Simulated assay, not measured.
Amino acid sequence: MLVAERHRKIVEIVNKKLSVRVSELSKMFSVTEETIRRDLEKLEKEGRLLRSHGGAVSIERDQQLELSYLEREVTNAKEKKAIAAEAVKLIQPGDQIVLDASSTAWYMAKELPNVPLTVITNSIRVAIELSVKDQIKVMSTGGMLSSKSLSYIGPLAERSLETYHVNKAFLSCKGVHLEGGLSDSNEWQALIKKQMMEIADKTILLVDSSKFGVRTFALINHIEKVDEIITDSNIHPSYKKEFEGKNTKITIVPLL
């Protein structure tokens, strides 16, 4: 098989399966894993797929599943604003925190008082929101720009976080599942959120009640890695009981 034909078929397979591992492609085409890695590197440069840890993911999948920041801003806005306001209560002057690129984190940035803080974020919208608060030091991860979420993702963004340590990480996700853990529809977002958890003393998960019982494409981390969950009063009582049984603090915010 010619190299060009193999490349065409690899793209077809990735788009059909949404994600595929290097080892799978190596067996399919009877070539070494190193050859497949070179293929994936070339195809990524051509904009035909995205490499992931151990394989590749479909660009079409990311376009289909990652909601734009405008869509996320209006989805369950009432719940997200209430959760964000509660999360701000956990912040003390002098804290060093990290905020992800979720719409809830953006609402939180709007609520933050202008007091001495250091905020690391991969979100352009969060950084702009905080730029008018002169006592808050804002640090951006940099990295590959996701136009849908207006956030930085990818290996550069992940590596930039490795050099820092923060008191608290505030993040959201697409799914919270007792067995499946925290998950996101976009693998790049999942990876940077995991790194945010790694550099923090404490992780606070900000999720509205619709996220519970949901398990999406990419694992962020296990439930046990979360120190506190803030959600709204529409959460089913069974989930509250389950998390309390795991000794995970859960704060339920009433909706007015």
Rank of each mutant, 00 (worst) to 15 (best):
K194D: 08
M108L: 13
I13N: 01
C173M: 02
A157L: 05
F243S: 02
I204G: 14
K137Q: 15
E46D: 10
R6T: 13
L67Q: 06
K148D: 01
S209Y: 11
D184W: 06
E129L: 09
L205N: 12
F212E: 04
L219P: 07
L90S: 13
H177S: 15
V214D: 00
K17W: 09
T118C: 03
I91G: 02
S151G: 15
Q135L: 13
E71R: 06
K16G: 04
L205R: 01
Q96E: 11
L112W: 02
K174D: 14
L156T: 12
S209C: 08
E86Y: 05
Q96I: 12
M144R: 05
H165M: 10
R61A: 14
V20L: 01
L182C: 09
I220R: 01
S23L: 08
I229A: 01
T118Q: 13
T231G: 02
K246A: 11
F217P: 00
L182G: 09
G213P: 02
N76K: 09
R51C: 13
G54Y: 09
R21F: 11
V207H: 01
D39I: 11
K137C: 13
N247S: 15
A218H: 06
E162N: 04
L156H: 05
Q64N: 13
K110F: 03
D62K: 14
N122D: 11
P155N: 04
I83D: 11
A87Q: 05
S238F: 12
V20C: 00
S30F: 15
A84K: 05
L99D: 07
A85M: 12
V20W: 00
T248H: 07
S147A: 09
E111R: 10
S210W: 05
D184L: 07
E12T: 14
D134Y: 07
L206T: 11
A4S: 12
V119I: 14
L90T: 08
H236G: 09
L25C: 03
D134G: 05
L150S: 13
V20E: 03
E162P: 00
I10A: 03
K211V: 11
R21S: 14
V20P: 03
G55R: 01
I252K: 00
E33V: 09
E66D: 00
A82F: 03
N76L: 03
R21H: 13
I10R: 06
